[in-house]
Amino acid sequence: ELSQEQQALLNYIVEAYNKHRVPQDMAKKLLQEHFSAEENFLLLTEMATSHVQVLVEFTKNIPGFQSLDHEDQIALLKGSAVEAMFLRSAEVFTKKRPQGQTEVLEERIRKSGISEEFITPMFNFYKSIGELQMRQEEHALLTAITILSSDRPYVKDQQAVEQLQEPMLEVLWKFCKLQHPQDPQHFARLLGRLTELRTLNHQHAEMLESWRMS
């Protein structure tokens, strides 16, 4: 059972997660079917900036985050931005969408000029997230847990970060037990996705360079 405090934390995190989203007009442009390679590149890079801003606004709402050392806050956000973006875009891709929308989104990525060697692991990740049938609470908590990883480069006070992450992990563990009773490994599988995210993160810089060249 979630304690009252844990339920309140969960509600708060989910509310913050839902409140901060990429602007609608930008999201609508993504669903336009006809676009040139250049238009696509510009839109996707614009969306990346917006995604980071959304991520920062969400993170500011994580209890205790703004009381961390300021440079540690920067280090955590820098270290987790790419992973958080992949998580958020996985949610978008695996959500049930009106007819044809997922195909348009997929087409944008496949025609973007990004090499197949990077696209394949990305879509494999989206597929593995989809298979988990995650609830919104799980997306929100997993994002917070990703951001609060104390082993990011340049984080000085790792203990302070771990102290913020621990309650999130506990709430997620309980939530998994309550919502996925038929899958006792659900929590472990969610954490396994974080490992997959690290791989995507490491490949990301190489992916950007190759994309820019193409």
């Binding site: 980071v52 801003q53 300021h70 920067i74 956000l77 820098k78 360079e209």
Partner: peptide, 22 residues
């Protein structure tokens, strides 16, 4: 890649200081 990291940090610092304009 180092250019991307600097760009990312600048966006983060700006967003941390101010409000994201919805």
């Amino acid at each position: 890649p180092s250019g991307n990291t600097i760009g990312l940090e600048a966006i983060i610092r700006k967003a941390l200081m101010g409000k994201y304009d919805e």
